[in-house]
Design a binder for these strands. Structure first.
Lengths: 335, 335
DNA sequence: CTGTTAGCGCTTTCAG
DNA sequence: CTGAAAGCGCTAACAG
């Protein structure tokens, strides 16, 4: 169907190897032939078969991005950054969603052991307590980089934001706005981001001598319906918190929706502070106060780190961590 | 590095071809050997090299999704649908962003002529007036499907929503809420979605005898800054419209932000109606009224159509169009 | 500077 | 039911 090197070389009365070299600007080919070859290639609309090259070179010029969900502001921004970086480098990006299921994360990891990609960027699921599937990839020599949802026990570059610090500041902001009973709603008991954010939140409360009530530090799970019920129970109780610190956007939105149902006035009855990137639009700003992660930059940074280790011949990954700064965006009406 | 068929067959004292067949459940292999082979393969953690298979089979089990931007509610939802469908079928998804630039769309198309993917799903850029690059792909025998931003002159399956009808209904809603001076803010003069939405909007105005002022039917372009200025000028003028019909979410958000700057009260001073999928969150609902497209379903539907034509041996694509229904979500405070 | 040749790892006739 | 061998299209070592 498509024209290949053999045909092309025949038309040019040159050997296959000469043509191959000419097309890849090898220094051992004269300028004259290079020009002639390239012209003909364009004429015949020649495009190298990537599988043949990949097979020969043992590399694919492709990276994988594994994320819980693409339809999520943070992850789609990060994917944007990663894809943009990769495109600049002439690389292709395969995308895989785990839908927050460890089983899928494992299955995808297994699939990628075959060398289909030269490197992997991953943000773990809520459920990922064990990372031996990632370890296996590394053992096969496939470069891996974590971003945002990292596993701390693996020797892999990690790109995160300053979760503890930002949560600390965010909570201080709530306290300064007069909140005395702050609830933390998390997404996982195994994810570092969750635990760091919780720790930052608690530290701020401790510093300002706010009583910590463990019964209003809750964790959601996979079940959306149950989560809503949990949050509803929390917000509908007689000694309801006066603020919610939502670990992620998704939870902030659920909380917001429940406030509407319960006719609670935000921010009078309840303040919502959340990690969220929706506030790139003015719209969310008017509804809650948020901690925004530099998501696009994280994607680019992660890709950039990945390329660094991909380019190394004998790749020995180190567990360095790059921490980017989040920023606190204060709700309009609170300022 | 990785174990291959040769090694595996050596360990089993079988020929390469027998092992290959056993692994792919060929009927000409005895159950006993199949079992033995598969067990060993698992033991040795064997994974077929995809490039070798691809080269041999001339197919990649990979599709490409080409979109203007991934960090966009509609496109990320659609990508979610496409990726989910592909994952179910055991296919991989390559993602490419055009960033609304025709030049990139062309460059990506050229890259994909080499057979890296078995099929392509694409949503065009704002600038795409000419689609010969897509035609070239089709001529190379690569199945293509359009979704949302389609080119009407090509014989390709197209998945769209009922743009005219929904815009008509959305505009009627504005009119019934008392609007008398409605502005349409578009994104392109070549995209069918833009023109169909505009047509629907105008038709509703005509039906209800609302005066159409061409000076407030405007089109944005690539320049974000200029766009904001245009919209600001529109909303700051003495005979400002009492409603804006935003062709896409992006424009609705800009309009919203400008209202804040100008201290315009939404929806009292200005109503905003928009195509938007942000309203999956309660948050946007409280700010504007929107027409929501079934984005996830569109992604799945487009993937599904793509697979249909990919599976056909001698693929002759027809220009069938599948139209999905959008829904009008009315702003809370207006109900 | 150009050509010949040997694979990359897999699938698939064709023989047995 | 199993094995030998050719070849997918490209690259790179080796020769000239």
């Amino acid at each position: 169907m498509s024209v290949n090197l053999k045909e092309l070389s025949k038309k040019l009365n040159l050997s296959i190897s000469t043509v191959s070299r000419a097309l890849r600007d090898s220094s051992e080919i004269s300028e004259a032939t290079k020009k002639r070859v390239k012209k003909k290639a364009r004429e015949l609309n020649y495009h190298a078969n990537p599988f043949a090259s990949n097979l020969r070179n043992q590399k694919s010029k492709t990276i994988a991005v594994i994320i819980p969900a693409i339809a999520n502001t943070f992850f789609s921004l990060a994917t944007n950054g990663a894809e943009s970086f990769a495109q600049e480098k002439g690389y292709h990006v395969l995308i895989y969603q785990t839908h927050e299921e460890l089983a899928r994360e494992i299955s995808i990891s297994k699939h990628l052991q075959n060398g289909r990609v030269d490197g992997i960027m991953i943000s773990l699921t809520k459920e990922t307590f064990d990372t031996s599937h990632i370890k296996e990839l590394m053992d096969k020599g496939i470069p891996v980089v974590f971003f945002d949802r990292v596993a701390e026990n693996l020797q892999v570059p990690k790109i995160t934001t300053d979760d503890f610090e930002s949560a600390f500041k965010g909570t201080e902001h709530l306290i300064k706005s007069g909140c005395k009973r702050i609830s933390f709603i998390g997404i996982s008991e195994v994810l570092a981001i969750n635990n760091n954010r919780l720790a930052g939140c608690l530290a701020a409360m401790q510093k300002h001598k706010i009583k910590i009530d463990k019964s209003i530090l809750i964790t959601c799970d996979e079940d959306r319906i149950k989560n809503k019920q949990k949050i509803k129970k929390l917000l509908n109780s007689t000694n309801r918190p006066d603020a919610v610190f939502a670990c992620v956007e998704e939870i902030a939105i659920s909380s917001y929706e429940i406030c509407e149902e319960l006719k609670l006035n935000i921010p009078k009855d309840l303040k919502i502070m959340s990690y969220s990137n929706l506030n790139t639009s003015a719209i969310l700003k008017s509804a809650l106060t948020s901690i925004t992660q530099p998501a696009y930059e994280m994607g680019r940074e992660a890709a950039s780190e990945l390329f660094k280790i991909m380019y190394k011949k004998d790749y020995v990954s180190v567990g360095s961590t790059i921490v980017l700064k989040s920023s606190l965006i204060v709700r309009n009406s609170t300022k």
